[in-house]
């Protein structure tokens, strides 16, 4: 097949909503974009365990602690599904980790905010996972096969994450004045960063158009954000939380909630590395990755020894 025929076949697959598989021919820019998106997504799942891990030892009940541990374990699993999907494009996982450590690969800006009180764990599950679900449900239809399959698996596991978070918020809103204040405080701090998770507005997002054309992304940042807002504003009202946006209003004609202006300066500032926890998150990852080095060496030495013994006895 000539290059031109290969491109034609690729475009036809995309056109027919078929999946692109690892060994299929694909344009370099497609490979690069999918790889960047998958590794960024994988890193987000893994780094996202840190703000929640901060509360495991201080969870208010044994029930809450077990739930939080199970959720964090799921997030680690999500990271691994996504790393393994990214590996299908031939990149070594060591290289992915190295890019993360060197700041060449990004992760979601949301995980650079601190978790200050227990209600933050509620707010993360409800808002952060809630936003992630809206995005991931849409990505189940992404054109790259391994990415799409990882998303299907992840979506099955996510709904409990959002529910347990909402349950924490609802419980606190039913509690003492101090607990209500904590819940509202968490809402005030996490609402806007959660809206920023969908990325820049469509008119400022230069990645979006190409990604949509190749069906890597299946919905625009603004459409996904709106979906999340409509769903979540109602949930806030149900439990008595105030959405920290004085311009928020319901548009009777469009039937959508309209929000005030998002502070994109804050978003870019955090993306560029100046959030409250950027340094801490990466330093933590590097520390434990390096401290695990001797374990990896030891298990490899052990398996070599066992293999040598087995081949000796089978002679």
């Amino acid at each position: 097949m000539t290059e031109e025929e290969k491109l034609k076949r690729f475009n036809a697959l995309i056109e027919q909503d078929e999946k692109i598989e690892p060994k299929d021919w694909m344009p370099d820019a497609y490979r690069k974009t999918v790889l960047r998106q998958m590794t960024q997504h994988a890193h987000s799942e893994v780094i996202g365990m840190q703000p929640e891990g901060n509360w495991v030892l201080r969870a208010p009940t044994l029930r809450a602690k077990k739930i939080l541990l199970a959720k964090i374990q799921d997030e680690g699993g999500h990271g691994l599904y996504l790393y393994s999907a990214a590996e299908t494009l031939g990149m070594d996982r060591s290289e992915m980790i190295q890019q993360l450590h060197e700041g060449k690969a990004k992760y979601s800006q949301i995980f650079n905010y601190p978790t200050l009180n227990w209600a933050d764990i509620g707010a993360i599950g409800w808002l952060v996972d809630g936003a992630a679900i809206v995005n991931q449900v849409s990505l189940q239809r992404t054109s790259y096969g391994p990415y799409s399959r990882a998303m299907v698996r992840i979506c099955k596991e996510e709904s409990f994450h959002q529910r347990q978070g909402y349950e924490i918020m609802a419980t606190m809103m039913n509690g003492t004045e101090a607990q209500k204040e904590m819940a509202q405080d968490a809402m005030n701090r996490w609402w806007w960063p959660s809206l920023m998770m969908f990325g820049p507005s469509d008119k400022d997002s230069w990645h979006t158009q190409e990604s949509m054309q190749w069906k890597i992304k299946r919905a625009s940042n603004d459409d996904l954000r709106q979906k999340f807002i409509d769903k979540t504003v109602d949930q806030a009202y149900v439990i008595g939380l105030t959405v920290p946006d004085k311009d928020l209003k319901f548009n009777e004609t469009s039937k959508h909630w309209e929000i005030g202006a998002i502070n994109w300066d804050e978003f870019w500032n955090v993306v560029k590395g100046n959030g409250l926890c950027n340094h801490k998150r990466i330093a933590h990852h590097i520390k434990y990755h390096n401290e695990g080095q001797w374990v990896r060496q030891a298990v490899l030495a052990y398996s070599e020894k066992i293999n040598a013994m087995q081949s000796a006895t089978s002679l």
Binding site: E87, D92, R93, S94, N290, Q293, R296, V299
Partner: peptide
């Protein structure tokens, strides 16, 4: 770089 190629085998 310290962490180059230190992943366990793939299954």
């Amino acid at each position: 770089m310290e962490n180059k190629n230190d992943q366990l085998p793939l299954w």
